[in-house]
Amino acid sequence: MASKGVQIVCVALGVLGLIGVIVCCAVPRWKVSSFVGSNIVTAQSSQEGLWTTCVVQSTGQQQCKNYDSLLVLASDLQAARAMTIISAMLSGLSLLILFCGADFTTCIENEDAKPKISLVAGIGLLLAGLLVIIPVSWSAHNIVREFNSPLVLASQKKEMGACIFIGWAAGVLLLIAGGLLCCFSRPGSGSSGGTAKYYSNSASAPNKNYV
């Protein structure tokens, strides 16, 4: 069974990963304007996220607009929406399961069931980490491909925003937490299943006849 220290570390990593996934999902910083080549006008810059696109003026004013329709979005953006939401829900549920099956809580008193519950929580955190790493890596690949494409104008090129790196960090934290739980949360073998009992019959030893 995982020690209390390992479980506490996994809880901390899971909470940090969950916060990162929420920030990655909510903040519109997946794509930002790239000022390269002839695009040296820095009076305003654009920022794109999963839900809104924003224009930031040099004076600090920011105007954001929601996307008109889900059907007109790119496939990677549609997948990123679904995966990040599922990742946040799955990581939150896994943390609740981990709290119930942890050694430092008394929600469940059955010691044999706690390792299994912690193992389920670890698998959930692993899946949550993969669900956030896949969309940010997909978006990063598309951004780099469009940036290096000669068919895209310099004024239309984008760079990776902060949410891409936050998503990678959150995914790694969730993978580490889930991996530690899966490695240390193994049910132990029972110690009372094959106990042998011996009885002494010295008091009732049979009489021996000597010839």
Rank of each mutant, 00 (worst) to 15 (best):
M1Q: 06
A2V: 06
A2W: 05
K4G: 09
K4Y: 09
Q7R: 05
Q7I: 07
I8G: 03
V9K: 12
A12Q: 12
G14C: 13
G20N: 03
V23A: 15
C25E: 14
C25I: 14
A26M: 13
A26S: 13
V27F: 09
V27N: 08
P28W: 06
R29K: 11
R29A: 12
W30I: 13
S34K: 04
S34N: 05
F35R: 00
G37L: 00
G37I: 00
T42A: 01
T42D: 01
T42V: 01
A43N: 06
Q44K: 06
S45G: 14
S45W: 05
S46R: 09
T52A: 10
T53I: 15
C54G: 09
C54K: 08
V55T: 10
V56D: 10
Q57H: 10
T59L: 07
T59R: 10
G60T: 06
Q62S: 15
Q63L: 12
C64Y: 09
K65M: 15
N66R: 11
N66D: 15
N66C: 09
N66W: 10
N66P: 14
D68I: 14
L70Y: 13
L71A: 15
A74Y: 15
A74L: 14
D76M: 14
D76I: 10
R81M: 05
A82C: 11
A82Q: 07
M83S: 13
M83L: 13
T84C: 07
M89Y: 11
S91A: 10
G92H: 02
L93R: 04
I97A: 04
I97G: 02
I97E: 02
L98Y: 05
F99H: 08
C100I: 14
C100Q: 13
C100Y: 10
A102R: 01
A102Y: 02
D103M: 09
D103R: 09
T105P: 03
C107T: 15
E109T: 08
E111D: 04
A113E: 08
K114F: 04
K116S: 05
I117E: 01
V120F: 05
G124A: 00
G124P: 00
L125A: 01
L127R: 01
L127T: 02
A128N: 01
G129A: 01
L130M: 15
L131N: 01
V132A: 02
V132E: 02
I133S: 08
I133G: 05
I134V: 12
V136M: 07
V136P: 02
W138S: 14
W138P: 07
H141W: 11
N142H: 07
F147N: 00
F147H: 00
N148F: 01
N148D: 04
P150R: 00
K157I: 02
E159C: 05
M160C: 06
M160T: 04
G161V: 06
G161H: 04
A162M: 09
A162F: 12
I164R: 04
F165D: 03
W168I: 09
A169K: 08
G171S: 06
G171R: 02
V172A: 10
L173G: 06
L174Y: 02
L175H: 06
L175A: 14
A177F: 00
G179I: 07
L180I: 13
L181P: 03
C182N: 06
F184K: 09
R186A: 12
S189T: 15
S189W: 11
G190A: 15
S191G: 09
S192L: 11
G193T: 13
A196E: 13
K197P: 10
Y198L: 07
Y199D: 12
S204R: 08
N207L: 12
K208L: 14
Y210N: 07
V211C: 12
